[in-house]
């Protein structure tokens, strides 16, 4: 077997290994985790000919600087990302949604995301990692997942599993669509809130604050006032739930959220809009729109069809 190895020269921001996530462990306090933007995750793997649950490197705002230490790799980057490649000492401006071949001493410098949060770095064959609780996905807070449940650190080296090197060039024409408003369903404590607050919740804009991460998106806007109680008995949470604590600033639960929480739930983001929601960077504003369950289900079918259609084009 040929050995292929990469070295991390700069770790980037919140760089972790992620796959499709982890099911069946919420009852012990382990959330779903997994790639935040599922569609871009799937596309990255497809571009390098991997199975759909292979681990990739997810990064936020800035990605790692990677050097090929031993052997060759074939990689692709998905998202809206600025990156450079140093190949045989020559600098190439990288294109997303396209695969590249690199050899020993070549480098990939993932400079930044453009007006978005997450990007994905996938390699043909996949990284040689150990699963934990059925998934590679890293949940840093409980030290669970690949790389001993830790973020990717500077100077760490990772092996790449064997891959067919006579690959064909693959690419995809894809623009990450922006969204005007996030569609939501009524939460289980919808009636806790003042009519006026509900009105403001759906008509005013909310700022995505810097305190947002893989656990949650903290918003600031008109104070959402609670009629009834500011706390409920702690109960289970799922990703997409919008909780409103006593200070009136909504928090949206994201993939690494705590599994139990005690704030009233005003709404839940529909599954079809989740990928686009997580890509809204801090400093940007978002708007919400309530829809009905049937419509949300239809939107999800459409989202799923679009994703499958994109994957089939690669």
């Amino acid at each position: 077997m040929k050995i292929n190895k990469i070295k991390v020269l700069r770790e980037g921001i919140n760089s972790t290994f992620q796959d499709l996530g982890r099911n069946n462990f919420y009852h012990i306090g382990l959330p779903f985790s997994g790639a935040m933007d599922k569609r871009n995750y799937l596309i990255a793997n497809q571009l390098v000919g991997n199975k759909h649950n292979e681990a990739v490197i997810e990064f936020a705002y800035q990605g790692p600087l990677i050097k090929i230490e031993v052997g060759n790799i074939n990689f692709a980057i998905s998202g809206d990302i600025k990156f450079n490649i140093k190949k045989n000492g020559k600098l190439i401006i990288g294109d997303c949604y396209k695969n590249y071949n690199l050899s020993k001493n070549d480098e990939v410098d993932i400079v930044s995301t453009n007006n978005s949060v997450y990007g994905y770095f996938a390699v043909s064959g996949g990284f040689d990692l150990k699963k934990n609780f059925g998934s590679f996905s890293t949940h840093v807070r409980s030290n669970v997942g690949a790389n001993n449940g830790n973020k990717i650190q500077k100077n760490e080296q990772f092996f790449i599993k064997d891959f067919k090197e006579n690959y064909s060039n693959k690419s995809l024409k894809y623009m990450n669509s922006k969204i005007e408003y996030i569609r939501i369903l009524k939460g289980t404590n919808f009636d806790y809130f003042f009519e006026q607050s509900i009105k403001e919740f759906t008509s005013k804009e909310f700022l995505v604050t810097k305190l947002s991460d893989r656990m949650g998106m903290r918003l600031q806007g008109p104070k959402i006032t609670n009629l009834k109680e500011t706390n409920i008995r702690s109960e289970g949470l799922i990703k997409g739930v919008i909780q409103v604590p006593a200070d009136g600033n909504p928090i949206i639960m994201l993939s690494d959220h705590g599994t139990i929480g005690g704030y009233p739930k005003i709404g839940v983001v529909v599954s079809a809009d989740y990928d686009r929601l997580v890509q809204i960077p801090s400093g940007k504003k978002i708007k919400f729109k309530f829809i009905e369950l049937k419509e949300a289900e239809k939107l999800y079918k459409l989202y799923q069809m679009e994703t499958e259609n994109l994957l089939s084009q690669i």
Binding site: Y26, R233, S234, E235, G236, I238, I260
Partner: peptide
């Protein structure tokens, strides 16, 4: 996918 039991939910 997941079951999350709590006090009364």
């Amino acid at each position: 996918n997941n079951l999350i039991p709590s006090y009364n939910k």
